[in-house]
Nucleic acid binder design. Structure first.
Lengths: 238, 238
DNA sequence: GCAAAAGTGTTGTGTATACACCCATGG
DNA sequence: CCATGGGTGTATACACAACACTTTTGC
């Protein structure tokens, strides 16, 4: 039978299923929340890292007792990075290390709009997503997955708008897509699809910024289709 | 500025970002892994619940120190339910309750093929996914999200095969889709699409099981496109 | 021969792709 | 007047939905 055979659990000592005790007897893991915070600058996708003592790491923090995980992630963005995110989504949870360094890591994806202030607290720095310094195994995994999800969601959600300022030109929007996907897109087809989606509201303003025709400015028409995001209904999303 | 404004964190006391200490000083949450285990029986989508003392709950367990979360989920399926899953995927992590009952729950989605033995340990029972008994808030959320993900993934992955026996007829496959989606599908369009996807290998066998024309048996052609699943590259999937 | 499920095509409609030129402006 | 990015349309291929009848078998 050729069939997805699943290997046995690595540690596999049988721990009985607990009903609903506190579970405080065994030594628990430490828990931390890490955020992969993206923005677009100079037409390139960037990520916040904390460089300390020569090695870089994702901004992270420990949830306060009973603090919602989304709340902890928000707090990390605000506190550690000094930023205000526009979108936040839980990615994946993994368990790394051996006791007593056993840690459960909850990874988050965050987006910062190009309109917001993006100055970072000391120690934090924006890095090109394409050329990241060496990271821990765990951080690498989280970043890699964040990128995978972000790229995939460009296709079927309006997530890209959270990377832009409040009003923006078509070229900026297209540039955001290209920066995330890492490949150029056809201008006419791009416009057609975005317009067909009906998610842009034109403003009357134009942006004049060079010796060429001024560009029309648009605004994201909120229609925040939670539906298509495949995000759990209870999560607070953006 | 009409714009995804994010409310402040609920608990919002500033906890400094920790570098990489063990974090063992604050009281930690208890951690459990819960699995929403689906199968198809009698043409209906079913879920394992543990009925104890009158109220039902998802099968759950506590990860052993340093045990991978996927491993813990597998162990729960094997141990608590007495089953062997064909597919397993992490869903979401949530933090519920107040100290000292503070619990971090990692939710999993599991699939059991209709070919496998599906007898459950005492206390476990298969319930129609459409008519579940009352569950805790947390369990309800996890089940609801599992269904959402499963339905969505039917559309762009081959996940449905993990709900079927090793060989199956077209009608069984279509029935699985219909059971999960909760709506009928057109036979001809369904066949065309599945064949076009090139994921079925015909066997020579036929199934004869009534006073009507025997059906051709197919086998899933493994091509396990991890790609399309949008599952993290490090997860062990099925 | 009849009941019951298996199997099979065509047509229309919409959606995605490929592709090249004129427009408005500043200097 | 020229360099620069802004803005526009068409033709073709492909994907998806709607829809009904013939085939093979057991009884």
């Amino acid at each position: 039978m050729r069939d997805p055979v699943v290997p046995d659990a690595p540690v596999a000592n049988v721990i009985p299923v607990v009903g609903d005790d506190g579970g405080q007897d065994a030594i628990g893991p430490s828990l931390d929340v890490r955020v992969v915070l993206f923005t677009i600058a100079d037409g390139r996708l960037q990520v916040v890292l904390h460089d300390e003592a020569g090695h870089a790491s994702l901004p992270l923090g420990t949830p306060a007792p009973a603090e919602a995980l989304d709340g902890a992630a928000r707090r990390i963005v605000r506190g550690a990075a000094g930023l205000r995110e526009r979108y936040l989504e839980q990615l994946y949870t993994l368990s790394v290390g051996e006791p007593p360094a056993w840690t459960v890591i909850v990874g988050y994806l965050g987006l910062v709009g190009a309109g917001e202030p993006r100055a970072l607290r000391p120690g934090g720095e924006w890095h090109d997503a394409a050329r990241l310094p060496q990271l821990s195994e765990a951080d690498r995994m989280v970043v890699e997955y964040a990128l995978l999800r972000l790229r995939a969601k460009l296709g079927y959600t309006t997530i890209a708008f959270h990377l832009l300022p409040e009003t923006f030109t078509f070229s900026e929007l297209q540039g955001a897509y290209e920066a995330v996907l890492g490949q150029p897109l056809d201008k006419r087809n791009f416009r057609r699809r975005v317009i067909a989606a009906g998610i842009l509201a034109p403003t009357n303003a134009k942006r004049r910024e060079g010796s060429h025709r001024p560009a029309m400015l648009y605004r994201f028409r909120a229609r925040h289709d939670r539906e298509t995001y495949l995000t759990p209904p209870w999560s607070e999303g953006a």
